Simulated scan of single mutants.
Amino acid sequence: MNNQFFEDYEAMSAHAGHIVLSELKRKENLRICAATGNSPTGTYEFLARQYLNRPELFKKLHIVKLDEWGGLPDTHPGSCEYYLQEHLLSPLHIPNDRYTGFITNPQNASKECKRIQQKIENDGLIDLCILGLGKNGHIGFNEPDHHLQPFCHVAQLSEASQRHGMVKDLDIKPSFGMTLGMQNILSAKRIILLIYGTGKEEVRSKLKKKNITTQLPATFLWLHPKVDCLQVKST
């Protein structure tokens, strides 16, 4: 894991954006798995600005949604779908045929996960996975547990995840999510882990120790050969 520290959020976001651009220049039909939340927003804003000057760079880019809250309509501001449409898909003009994402409120969540898993397998490996770090060490909705799931699955959400900024103000919070599994994530050719925000001091300290445990899913990233862990020095 390549740990890098930055003075502020803008510098971290710009660095992550330059990594994405370098990968796009190397492979124009890049497949990016995209997280949502505060941590990657600055990176997506950086890419949106780059699109205005060099739209040709993004003409074959494919986006894969990392996860989704269960039960929210896609028009709900707290849904991952709404977030990605606003911050990434619309600014980069990504059409539906270059986007893979969970339906936000499927009749059968398990069947929806199987559909996404099959599509990922058919389309090929993810080139670059952009992740944030949960306060309890989760990545995607791969929550701390006695065991972890390898592929797309329905995840029961922890209390920590239900306090996430995207849904914390809802009267009835989602009890489950749909997410790529650990093997899906670790099969990506390159990973960017963005660590930003308050309340993550303890999990950052644990991650630094390199002790791999299902109780802190992000520690499994130590098994990957190409992870850029970008952190703001103090948040």
Rank of each mutant, 00 (worst) to 15 (best):
T104P: 03
C129W: 05
T104S: 15
C113Q: 11
H147T: 14
Y82T: 12
C113W: 10
D127R: 06
Q117T: 09
G134H: 01
E159W: 01
G78D: 02
Q118S: 03
V154C: 08
P95V: 08
L66V: 05
A155L: 10
E86M: 13
L128I: 10
P77M: 06
P95A: 07
L92R: 03
E86F: 02
G134I: 05
H62A: 15
A155D: 05
Q85P: 09
Q118P: 07
Y99Q: 12
H147M: 11
L157P: 01
R115L: 04
F151D: 04
K111C: 08
D74S: 15
I130K: 08
I94V: 12
V154G: 08
H146D: 13
I139T: 05
H146L: 13
K65P: 10
H76S: 03
R98I: 03
E86S: 12
H93S: 11
T104M: 04
F141L: 04
H146C: 11
I139P: 02
S110G: 14
P106H: 00
L125G: 12
C80V: 01
G137I: 00
E112P: 09
L61A: 08
D127A: 10
L84C: 02
F141G: 01
T75Q: 14
K119W: 08
P91V: 07
H147E: 15
I130W: 10
L133H: 03
P144A: 03
K60L: 08
S90L: 10
P77V: 12
F141I: 02
L131F: 03
Y82M: 09
S90H: 08
G71T: 05
G101Y: 09
E143P: 08
D123K: 12
L133D: 00
I126M: 06
N96K: 15
K135R: 07
P91R: 06
D97Y: 13
I63M: 04
H93A: 06
Q149E: 09
L72Y: 13
K135E: 05
I116K: 00
D145L: 04
P106Y: 10
L157V: 02
E86G: 12
K60S: 14
N136P: 01
L72S: 02
H93C: 14
Y83K: 03
H87V: 09
E112Q: 12
Q85G: 06
L66P: 11
Q85I: 01
L89R: 10
P144H: 00
S158V: 00
